[in-house]
Amino acid sequence: MANILNIVQAVNQALENEMENDPTIVVYGEDVGLEGGVFRATAGLQKKFGEKRVFDAPLAESAIVGTGVGMAINGLKPVVELQFMGFSYPAFNQIISHVARMRNRSRGRYTLPMVIRAPYGGGIRALEHHSESTEALYAHIPGLKVVIPSTPYDAKGLLIAAIRDPDPVLFLEPKRIYRAFKQEIPENAYELPIGKAKIVEEGEDLTIISWGAMVREVQKASEMVKEKGIYPEIIDLRTISPMDRESFVESVKKTGRALIVHEAPKSFGPGAEIISVINEKAFLHLEAPPTRVTGFDTTFPLPRGENHYLPSPERIAKTIEDLVKY
């Protein structure tokens, strides 16, 4: 039977495959056990691997991550779930003060092979605090990797790589496209490299860099501008930190134009870092100022306003045209 899965199912299968391979992996978080998580990403795992390896945590994010630190030091590989990125902040102290620093401050004596998973991003008309896209906060922390897949194939391969990675990884899952589409993917475990972007579409006229649920919006915009004879090159960054700088620097050298699309707020967002790198490494190739289409510098609006906030294919397409005409 073909293994055709959406993103949540791919996450689930990655966890299952790896738990079979590695008895030190434990999975826990709020409601991940019996219920299998509010998005069902851990469905069936407790039944298969038992309550010792898959369990419900008391409602406390700081403890979920903080105990993960202890478990990792003591030889386990915790793969913890934070129910929504908007509820990761109670754990922020543990992440910035310990998760990201342990290897460095103990000069390699203690390392933390752990994964923190969290659904993130807007577009599902969710309640307050359920649509956050604050990857920049975490990408800014030295010692922490931040990975964001945008397809089932990438979700599985990158999550397995994150679990096998000797260092802590924050794995953010774009919940807007959790069930948006399916792909046939390998049933067995496979790894995709963390820190490597992917060229989604090749093109000559400009380079668009994006990730998460925005990749699909960029693809829709790309279809719109192709009708006008504009051919974008689309790069799915896949890892926010450490960034695959070469991927977009080489592309921008070819196209001379760069557009970054992210749903996080504009100021101090990951787009700002990408533009700095482009300026540092491809300045003389630029034919137009690198440009951003992003969320606003505002709190993510409640559902009646989220359509304004999120970059739409139309807004992206319009900016592409402006950029090519520049």
Binding site: K266, D297, T298, P301, L302, G305
Partner: peptide, 23 residues
């Protein structure tokens, strides 16, 4: 009950900073 566009921007601070005004 659709959100007014200005409402998304104008309640973050007593006075809207230039970045927000521009956006």
């Amino acid at each position: 009950s659709d959100t007014e566009i200005e409402d998304i921007f104008k309640y973050h601070f007593e006075k809207m900073p230039p970045q927000l005004e521009e956006q």
